[in-house]
């Protein structure tokens, strides 16, 4: 890479600068090509300067080549250059990996059915499809999670845990219809086929002491997991 520093008072020098960088050279010998460009650049600058001096205004500009090619460096400089490159590379790698990890996490949260958000989606669907809940709450049923200070309700309170190597997830969210509100509690367990199954799911209705049990597979699942 050649980088050239210019101290130019006038704006149109920058045009030359960009031309320098985006100029594509037909020659295959890159070194020659670069030198060629530099020479052309310097030549043009010299011409410009001459013109400027002719017109009576003094103008200072310096074009200098930094960063010698790697092969011309001494051993110490080589070490220093490699260290610099390596440090830049680590910064880039760390940044890219953090971004990648974040996108992976978000993608898993949004698209997987086993993430808390996926569990919430399927559970909400199962609740709204239940006839008893529809009778108790009324027809358009909406679901939401915990209210934050800023009026957001999209995060459900949940806890994931493992018991004897079997993954469990417990969750609580709220549903609301025209007649009543309710709190849904559920627990899902990974069955031997590594799929989440409801261990239980029930809805506590707000205005009554009643709770509607939608799923209760505790006996079956616990026995199933004991056998494995």
């Amino acid at each position: 890479m050649i980088s050239i520093r210019i101290c130019a008072r006038n704006q149109n020098k920058f045009q030359n600068f960009s031309q320098l960088f985006f100029n594509t050279c037909p020659s295959k010998d890159t070194k020659l090509c670069k030198n060629d460009i530099v020479r052309r650049f310097l030549h043009r600058n010299a011409l410009n300067q001459k013109l400027k001096e002719d017109s009576g205004r003094h103008n200072t500009q310096i074009a200098e080549q930094k960063d010698k090619p790697f092969s011309e460096l001494s051993l110490g400089q080589k070490v220093a250059r490699t260290g610099k490159d390596a440090s830049y590379l680590t910064v880039i790698v760390i940044g890219v990996s953090i971004t990648g990890a974040m996108f992976y996490m978000i993608g898993r949260e949004l698209f997987s059915r086993e993430s808390p958000n996926g569990v919430y989606s399927t559970a909400l669907k199962d609740c709204t499809n239940d006839v008893r809940i529809e009778a108790a709450l009324g027809k358009p049923i909406k679901g939401y999670g915990e209210t934050t200070r800023r009026g957001r309700r999209r995060f459900t309170s949940h806890s994931e845990y493992e018991v004897e190597g079997v993954k469990h997830i417990r969750m609580k969210f709220y549903i609301e219809g025209p007649h009543n509100k309710g709190t849904v509690h559920l627990e899902k367990v990974k069955d031997p086929n590594n799929k989440y199954q409801y261990r239980y799911m029930f809805v506590d209705l707000d205005n009554s002491n009643r709770s509607i049990i939608i799923e209760d597979n505790r006996q079956m699942l616990d026995n199933l997991l004991k056998q494995v």
């Binding site: 949260e109 958000n117 919430y120 909406k142 679901g143 309700r153």
Partner: peptide, 13 residues
């Protein structure tokens, strides 16, 4: 939220 009857991260995205 009104249309989907559901609050989740998809809404804000």
């Amino acid at each position: 939220v009104y249309v989907r009857k559901k609050e989740d991260p998809w809404n804000s995205i």
